[in-house]
Design a protein around this nucleic acid. Structure first.
Lengths: 340, 340
DNA sequence: CTGAAAGCGCTTACAG
DNA sequence: CTGAAAGCGCTTACAG
């Protein structure tokens, strides 16, 4: 059986209150008593029951992270950012992911209730209103890249619209006039914002042009398929803007297989700036989504909210999304309208 | 204030025992009482305190995963495998990572004590003996890719030695006689096994040849540096075997920048088969480390051990590591000993 | 089938 | 500075 505070008290010949005070660093304990107790704690290898502690203090020192998915470097970078910040704050991290639909996400959310002091929620489902009904009112929460309905919770987002706009401007400045866009999942808020950024830039910078959207779902496979479609076109665009890096990498693979040289034959761009994008060949022009930073900031904010629920008023911050120009985009070599 | 079981009992006009029985699905509750209680639970939005529950049942329905790092797709795939299996079993997942040294890992381990019903530990530090002193004796644990000292805990590992051996054989069969190896961190058990596999294959298949080891640390950057070193050699090897995919991808980038065509000018191979390795250009010949499967199997095993601590005897399973031949390896074009 | 009561392992006023 | 005792929110024998 596990050793409890009573065992320590008995062996040390003091009361459980004194053991508790010693362990919690209360000042009113004699140095003598202190070292006596600590010795017994050591000897008995006593570890306080965190369940008992959190029951009474109403603190679990744990935060939950509700994520939509776990595929790819995007999420490992996000978790890494959260984990780093959590460790610095002495918080544990409970992750929950891979929720097929809203009902599953809601269930996961409720299951977190009571196990965590606060919640980090990334739910890019366009319609994430179900969240509100499933987060208990007094549980601190911070939203990431989630469509916010105003709301009492702080939120962080990446400037998806601005980033996509900047990428299109970059391509137009390079001389591209026919820019295809590989969209993310239709029900995904971030994907939608990026699409809108593309459209807005097209309208502003290439008035009269028509959009060219290929449907993807943020996976490499869907990027590969989009690339195959591009290859098959008679009126091939001079540039492809995939709305995340994984799709760009899948697309690159399809273009290469078809014998197209990027960026000589066709330019290619992504979004997110996952670490690997710097190392593909050619290195990928993309938009930096500051993933790790996003996770870290959200955690910091959550920690502050947990510590001072009343002092903190909800804030809504949008992180800049910078253009990162690498080798995969260039001036188009051939006049547009080339057929294969 | 949060609503407790007492509130439910009071409103429903029954005892807390009855509420508890209803909620825990005990059969000895009238259908009438049951629906009455459930109605009040619904109405009051009662969620039982998991702290109180786990204090009394000694079950947290949470498992902890202690990981060495979180960089790259390797870890997102691993977490994904664990998360999927955990969800299927109704278990929560507490992750802890980024431990600089043994002391930090030990502290993390102790902090998990009491918060989890069991532990998944991946600690490829060659010297992971500190683990034993910090896992409480009666806490179920399963080790992944950790040097096992026999041990009372079940373990899963990937056949790093065999996989590396198979890769060298593949390269030798393709006609390579000078195969450089990019090693992982020296203190990493897996990295060490892969190195030994390379050496063993060299000794068996290219007797008399000398090894050619470049030091890396499993990061893309270190792979890039190794690639740069290879480029600078006058006696360039005809093939480079990077001991993980991230280093291979970094290496590929360096080779490309130097104007070398893979596999025409030099063959390149990796290890792990992270998803992106299929999509780089050329696609990467590698060894499949079954990462997601590893995580899932380990979780399953842990869950079984938690449920039936006595029925389960420790098992030690090694997963096959299959060679995956893609485009990055080919027959050397030029005779060996070419200088640039 | 249901309730009163003990107890899980802690923390924290309240006394002294 | 230290201890006795109440109480956190549950579950589970034990009675009835």
């Amino acid at each position: 059986m596990a050793v409890t505070i009573k065992d320590v008290a008995r062996v040390a010949g003091v009361s459980v209150a004194t053991v508790s005070r010693t362990l919690n660093g209360h000042s009113n304990v004699t140095e003598h008593t202190r070292s006596l107790v600590l010795g017994v704690v050591e000897q008995l290898r006593f570890v306080p029951s965190s369940a008992a502690q959190s029951m009474i203090t109403r603190r679990t020192h744990t935060v939950g992270a509700l994520l939509p998915d776990l595929h790819g470097e995007y999420f490992s970078e996000l978790i890494r950012g959260i984990d780093l910040a959590a460790r610095a704050r002495g918080l544990h991290l409970l992750v929950s992911s891979s929720h097929g639909d809203a009902a599953e996400a809601a269930a996961a959310l409720r299951a977190m209730n009571g196990r965590v002091d606060g919640l980090l929620v990334m739910s890019p489902h366009v319609n994430a209103d179900f969240l509100w009904g499933n987060i208990s009112d007094d549980l601190p929460a911070v939203l990431m890249n989630t469509r916010v309905a105003g709301g009492k919770h702080s939120s962080f987002a990446v400037d998806n619209h601005g980033g996509a706009y900047a990428m299109v401007r970059h391509l137009v400045e390079r001389g591209h006039r026919d820019i295809a866009f590989v969209a993310g999942p239709e029900s995904n808020f971030e994907a939608h914002e990026r699409l809108l950024g593309y459209r807005a830039a097209l309208a502003d910078l290439l008035p009269g042009s028509s959009e060219h959207v290929l449907q993807g779902d943020f996976t490499q496979e869907s990027g590969f398929r989009a690339g195959s479609q591009v290859v098959a076109l008679t009126q091939r665009p001079s540039a492809v803007f995939a709305s995340n890096d994984m799709m760009a990498i899948g697309c690159l693979s399809a273009l290469n297989e078809a014998g197209l040289q990027v960026p000589h034959d066709i330019s290619l761009a992504g979004f997110d700036d996952v670490p690997v994008s710097r190392y593909v060949n050619p290195s990928l022009t993309t938009v930096r989504a500051r993933i790790t930073e996003l996770g870290g900031l959200a955690l910091e904010r959550l920690a502050s909210t947990i510590e001072e629920p009343d002092r903190i008023t909800p804030s809504h911050q949008t992180l800049r999304a910078d253009l990162i120009v690498r080798q995969s985009t260039a001036t188009p070599a051939a006049p547009r309208g080339n057929s294969s």
